[in-house]
Design a protein around this nucleic acid. Structure first.
Length: 578
DNA sequence: GCCGTTTTCGGCCCGACTGTTTTCAGTCG
């Protein structure tokens, strides 16, 4: 039986949820949550970890008890404690915990006193006015719960980063107009460049919190002001997005920025470090006793515990504090490091701008090279290229390269990996190209073994230079297909193939964890726009963000290389290299 | 439930806001 890390994490999370409703010791609950989070982010398989003879107790936060439960889950796919907890309470109670305003205590009360077992039943109880009679609840709480349940049941998911950016920029501009608002930053997971954003955290440095709060709640498009105080406020926009505001004085801005940028896990780890040095960190500063010793800038906060500043993208408690302590923080890749883009489309297939227009945009972006990689014929809906049409495009690009200087257009293809792992165009056609980007666009539901074998076979084709959007995920729409990414990465390394970080906001694939896996295994990634129009080149900023979250440096990226360095890296395999 | 070179027991990050309360519990980030 193969039980993935995510499955173990899900079991531990559910145990934590159910224990919390039972009112168990909060630190016991935290132990399960911490362990679950670690499994999600481990690049190594728990199963492989054990098989290699490692001791589960050596994992941070795992003691004898959790080690036993991990072994149990790996062996049986189940956990007796969870089975027992499920038998003791209704299955859907954990759904209620996801509703804002409903924590473990209230969910417990709804269940015990009103026999509420699902979000739907809770909504009915709220509408019937039954919740207000419970001890500790009142009319207002009941209305808030009712509203939150209605939103929850209408299923407002997380917002993709690019869409969140539109709100974020507009909100920031709205608040910058307030007199005395010195600094406005959108913090939270948005600043950490997470691929999706659950809400926006707006931080403002100002003397007069009230004026900022008032301007905040006057933002056009506000649907509901959830709370409003002297230094904080919270509202929901018409689209369902929640926005939280905090106002702090300028001398606290750095501490507040650290605090509200998160992640929560990073903050807890940072505070624990501070505690060990007799310091206390909160959103107002770093304190020794009553004396504030830092806090105006983020740098001062990190310096107070002996650390260099840590880029927001790394603040996930994935080893960044330890790396900072040892002076081993990576110098993360930046947009300015990119010398070109290796994945784009034109009107020849499903793009919206012509070859000439796309090339002009790439030239305007300051690129040294730019690859056109249309779909292959299998993608009929995208008007994928046949060998004949590809030949015509090759001629057109050759002509452009001869007659226009300053930008080298690379001839490529985004060729479909067919069901059996063969490619959608014959080798004789692929051989004429500068690069071949292979991609899965079908049969997402193959078994893990089947999907892995299919992709591995495609990589064996000596013309393949790059694997596009390797997990196939579409954010908030389609889960990644089940595939053994470590095996694919190792094969890519052996063959000199590179992996894409597709920067399209719907994909961001590879994601952060796999970026780091590729880096650790010594595989270069290509941060590619997958642009379908000239504006699509802007996607690259999101790809950079995702790569930075994966600890990627300029040296880990294929398309930070000059054209002269790049071409051999693309050609290596065909010249009879490994 | 985990952790520890001051600890193997007694800790475990911390503050704001709301709504219910007569001093605070629950939730959130």
């Amino acid at each position: 039986m193969s039980v993935g890390n995510l499955a173990v994490a899900a079991i531990f999370e559910e145990i934590a949820d159910r224990l919390s409703i039972q009112g168990a010791n909060a630190f016991r609950i935290r132990a399960y949550r911490n362990a679950a989070r670690m499994f999600q982010e481990m690049t190594q398989d728990l199963e492989a970890f054990v098989a290699a003879g490692n001791d589960l107790d050596d994992l941070p936060g795992v003691g004898p008890d959790l080690a036993g439960k991990i072994r149990e889950v790996l062996a049986t796919g189940k956990c007796a404690l969870l089975e027992r907890l499920r038998a003791e309470m209704p299955p859907a109670l954990t759904d209620l915990l996801k509703v804002p305003g409903l924590g473990p205590k209230r969910v417990g009360a709804l269940w015990h006193d009103l026999d509420v077992r699902t979000p739907e039943q809770a909504l009915r109880a709220a509408r019937d006015g039954r919740i207000r009679s419970l001890p500790g609840f009142g009319e207002k709480t009941e209305r808030n719960i009712e509203r939150a349940l209605a939103v929850h049941l209408s299923k407002a998911g997380r917002l993709k980063l690019a869409l969140a950016a539109q709100y974020a920029e507009s909100l920031a501009a709205h608040l910058r107009g307030v007199p005395g608002a010195d600094q406005v930053v959108i913090a939270g997971s948005y600043r950490r460049m997470r691929e999706t954003v659950g809400d926006l955290d707006v931080l403002v440095a100002a003397r007069n919190g009230k004026a900022v709060v008032e301007q905040f709640t006057r933002y056009p498009g506000v649907a509901d002001v959830l709370s409003q105080g002297g230094t904080r406020a919270s509202m929901r926009l018409a689209g369902g997005l929640q926005v939280d505001l905090r106002v702090v004085p300028a001398e606290s801005f750095g501490a507040a920025l650290v605090y509200f940028t998160g992640s929560k896990a990073h903050n807890i780890a940072l505070r624990t470090m501070a505690q060990e040095r007799g310091l206390r960190i909160n959103e107002y500063g770093v304190f020794r006793g009553k004396e504030r010793i830092a806090g105006e800038t983020e740098e001062s906060v990190y310096a107070s515990v002996g650390l260099p500043p840590i880029p927001p993208e790394l603040r996930e408690d994935r080893g960044e504090l330890e790396a900072a302590r040892l002076g081993r923080l990576p110098r993360l890749v930046e947009y300015a490091d990119l010398r070109g883009d290796l994945h784009a489309h034109t009107t020849a297939t499903d793009g919206r701008n012509t070859l000439e227009e796309m090339a002009a945009a790439a030239r305007a972006a300051g690129f040294e090279y730019f690859a056109i990689t249309e779909h292959s014929r299998r993608q009929a809906m995208a008007h994928g290229l046949t060998p004949e049409r590809l030949a015509r495009q090759i001629d057109a690009i050759d002509w452009m390269n001869r007659h226009a200087g300053g930008l080298r257009i690379l001839k490529g293809i985004e060729v479909d990996i067919l069901d059996d792992g063969s490619l959608d165009l014959p080798d004789s056609v692929l051989a004429r190209l500068d690069l071949v980007v292979a991609a899965v666009h079908s049969r997402f539901n193959l078994s893990r073994a089947g999907q892995t074998a299919r992709i591995l076979r495609a990589l064996d084709n000596p013309h393949v230079t790059l694997l596009a959007h390797p997990t196939g995920r579409l954010l908030e729409e389609r889960e990644p297909y089940d595939v053994d990414m470590l095996q694919i990465i190792r094969k890519a390394r052996a063959l000199g193939i590179h992996l894409e970080v597709n920067a399209h906001p719907d994909r961001l694939d590879l994601g952060d964890v796999h970026c780091r896996m590729a880096k650790d295994e010594g595989v270069l990634v290509a941060i590619n726009s997958d642009a379908h129009d000239t504006a699509g080149l802007g996607n690259l900023h999101y790809g950079i963000g995702q790569a930075r979250r994966g600890w990627i440096t300029a040296g880990d990226v294929l398309n930070t290389r000059s054209l002269k360095e790049l071409l051999p890296l693309l050609a290596r395999r065909r010249d009879g290299g490994s």
